[in-house]
Amino acid sequence: MKIHVFFSRLLGLLIPLFLVASWHYLSVHEVVPTTLLPLPSVLFDTWWDMQKSGELLLNMKMSLLRVGGGFLVGASVGFLLGTVMGVWKPVELYLYPVFNFFRQVPVVAWIPFLLIWLGIGEWFKIVFISCGAIIPMALKTFEGIRGVPTSYLEVVRAFEYGKFRMFRTVILPSALPSILTGLRISLSEAWMLVIGAELVAAGEGIGNVMIIARRLFQTDVVLVGVVVIAVTGFIMDKLLDLLETRFLGWRRIQNVQ
């Protein structure tokens, strides 16, 4: 059983390995010029050089700070928005149509407008990332709260619970799985958008490293950027996964049963 699980996990590595092998083949035989597709081994060397020089860490730190800021602001606002819409029906009636309207706008479509308002500085990036992080968080929080079973609410209503205590004991825990999903989507959105923002204009950051590398015709550095972004995104998602396990232990066991 355990061995079987182990091997089925390995299956997920098969395609990446195959892709890397084909990639290596294509580059070595110059089917695709190395200026367009550098060798995997070159990529590794480039990554190591960037790592050693501290360049990667410095830029990574900058990007992560921006993600942190934008995500914190965006997720908080999104949580509040989703909560008030979920808890108070009148607020929903006022806000939801507006919210739905803004939801249709792809975040990147805000770039020109935000650039006019905020220029290309840090404010632009934070606001831009927040804009993207708000939507999934608000939506998932709202959905979570809407999905709280009436049966649970009745239990505490019979106990004369006020709004706040009801929110703490029933609404929040019941909506938590959905909220955590929102948090996850929000974070991955923020991570995508920070790269987008840095591609527009930035002094530092991993997206900036890539854009500079592109302008200096360093395809390998661009690709290292892609890999680093993917790995970072993966790690962030895993961290939230751990958070979920920590807070939703009751739910997992319940599902297994």
């Binding site: 220029g119 290309i120 500085g121 204009a201 930035a202 002094g203 900036n208 854009i211 500079i212 302008r215």
Partner: peptide
């Protein structure tokens, strides 16, 4: 250093970015 060119350079100079 801020990577910018063309009209973006001009507007950024105007906005003080």
């Amino acid at each position: 250093v801020i990577n910018t060119s063309g009209t973006a350079f001009e507007t950024s100079l105007a906005t003080g970015d």
